[in-house]
Amino acid sequence: MKTDLYRASTRGHFDHGWLDTYHTFSFANYYNPDRIHFGALRVINDDVVAGGEGFGTHPHDNMEIVSIPLYGELEHEDSMGHTEVIHPGEVQVMSAGSGITHSEYNSSKDKPLNFFQIWVFPKIQNVKPRYDQRSFDFDDKGRFIQIVSPNREDDNLWVYQDVWFSIATLDKDTELEYQIKKKGNGVFAMVIEGDFIVAGTELHRRDGLGISETETVKVRAASDNARILLIDVPMKI
């Protein structure tokens, strides 16, 4: 097993006033040659957006984009005709494919919004752009809840890559074993809240751990109501 530790305090950080953002991987003005991507996982941005503020209309192409609100409400509008609000407990996916434009705003005028925006390289280029969102019960403790996969028939959102996203909410000393879905994939673990021991490594709020060259990963909560995101992703792109 190989592990790479990404402490929360070592992420790229910029406070623009309206946007307080942390970058696990190189993004925008943050560049670290040792943190470009983890396999097909390209971006994990942890954004806090002030009330009434947001990202104006901008383009994307050939990227699978997953947005996960943690608190607050994310207002989305795109060139495919979607105008949506995504709440905590909901997840949004976009296949940018041959090209889209979209905007993202905090729908509240006075309360902050915090969300993860995650980018994954697709395995198919220039697909027709698509959008979807759905809700999940992340308060259902003690198990992995699969939220994204490559399989359209699964009871989750799907994307054009052999990647699986799962979230678990665990109480202290609860341990789960995660089985990697595809040979050659690795897992990136991102602590949303609380404390964990993952693959023998102590992790705290917003710490990340890249895990590869294994078939299983043990995850144990070290605090109550601890929540973690696992991204099971191809290591070769």
Rank of each mutant, 00 (worst) to 15 (best):
K2E: 14
A8I: 05
F14A: 15
T21A: 13
T24R: 00
A28R: 13
N32T: 04
I36W: 06
I36L: 14
G39K: 06
V48E: 14
G51H: 04
E53G: 11
I65D: 09
I68T: 11
E77I: 10
I86N: 10
A96W: 02
H102I: 07
H102L: 08
S103F: 12
E104C: 07
Y105N: 09
K109Y: 15
F115C: 06
F121C: 06
P122W: 06
I124R: 14
Q125M: 12
R130L: 12
Q133E: 15
F138T: 10
G142P: 05
F144G: 02
F144P: 02
I145T: 15
P150M: 11
D154E: 13
D154G: 11
Y160K: 14
Y160A: 13
I167N: 00
T174G: 09
E177P: 04
Q179N: 15
K183T: 13
G186E: 07
A189T: 06
V198Y: 00
A199Y: 05
E202G: 11
D207V: 00
L209E: 00
L209Q: 02
G210V: 00
G210P: 01
I211G: 05
E213R: 12
T214P: 03
R220I: 09
S223Q: 04
D224T: 03
R227D: 08
L229Y: 08
D232A: 07
V233G: 03
P234C: 03
